[in-house]
Write a protein that binds this DNA or RNA. Structure first.
Lengths: 162, 162
DNA sequence: GGGTTCGGTTCACCACTGCGAAACATTTCC
DNA sequence: GGAAATGTTTCGCAGTGGTGAACCGAACCC
């Protein structure tokens, strides 16, 4: 969503509307005006005169907040796992496993669910899933992603925590 | 909670700790430094030199956000204990104990109540609850949560005070 | 005040189970 | 043919729940 720039307090009349709509907004505060007090994380302000890079940085922050945090990984139409302008190729089995994890990014996916997805007509052996998870882990590590085990519940895909 | 002022980028090394603890913080950005990119609503910055009233306004905003949006820990549908974008997995027994504590976050939960919840058909031994509380304590410590004992009353879950 | 009890903490140990990982064998695909 | 993908076996480790015992501080009691 686009950030709206508002001269403040001159264009104060705009503000109620923007706030109501949840539009991210940056108040450009005149040299003499008192600083506004905004609690809303989607509202920010900067005192004029201001450097261009500072304005852009605040706009970028508001945009990121409006986009609801961090970007999530996805599997594109070619079966590549993409995340933050990097990508890795996946084998067919890995693609299914990664798909299940990506669809519920940050939440647990049960082992049985993943097994049924990778092998709809029955998994080869119990251990097969483990091995493919291991290989998937190594494959996605360069992207800054990791698969965490939640014992007796399943697996969880998340951003690598160092 | 108090807002911490950090000279940036000089005192950058502080920042990881503050972010991890969820401490609201205002970065004082040197005249030549590039603007930081913080998505966290509990982090803000201002370029030096800055007017006093502007600094105070931003501090007040951070304080207000910290006071309002104090998130409470919760146990999600997968049995994970989540708190402020971090999580730990819980074993079945720990999950029940943590569940009782989370539901009455900040208030005392009696030992007998917790014991009945973890073992509806009678606790194994007197000591069992203690041991599981000990293990739960160690597990949730990384989240910044702690279980406090209220002697002869029960236990209480709260944010770590250190 | 000094011992005792009470409530709670911590440790060491055991049995059990789920999952990890290496190493090897096999198949598939270009 | 050769590389990538897949499957299998085996070994080991770490998480889990339970138990007994030592420990410790606070309250209680004579």
């Amino acid at each position: 969503m686009d950030v709206v720039l508002v001269r403040w307090p001159e264009e104060n009349f705009h503000l109620g509307e923007l706030r109501g709509a949840g539009t991210p907004r940056l108040l450009l505060v005149g040299p003499e005006a008192p600083p506004p007090d905004s609690v809303d994380p989607l509202e920010d302000w900067i005192r004029l005169p201001a450097e261009d890079r500072d304005v852009r940085a605040r706009v970028a922050t508001l945009e990121a907040r409006a986009a609801n945090g961090m970007p999530t990984p996805e599997i594109d139409e070619d079966g590549l796992l993409r995340y933050r302008d990097r990508w890795v190729s996946l084998s067919p089995v890995e693609r299914e496993l990664a798909g299940a994890l990506v669809e519920r990014f940050g939440a647990v996916v049960g082992r049985d669910l993943m097994a049924r997805r990778a092998w709809p007509s029955g998994a080869p052996t119990r251990n097969a899933l483990d091995v493919h998870i291991l290989r998937l882990r190594r494959r996605i590590a360069p992207l800054g992603l990791e698969v965490r085990t939640v014992r007796s519940r399943g697996y969880l895909l998340q951003i690598t925590t160092s």
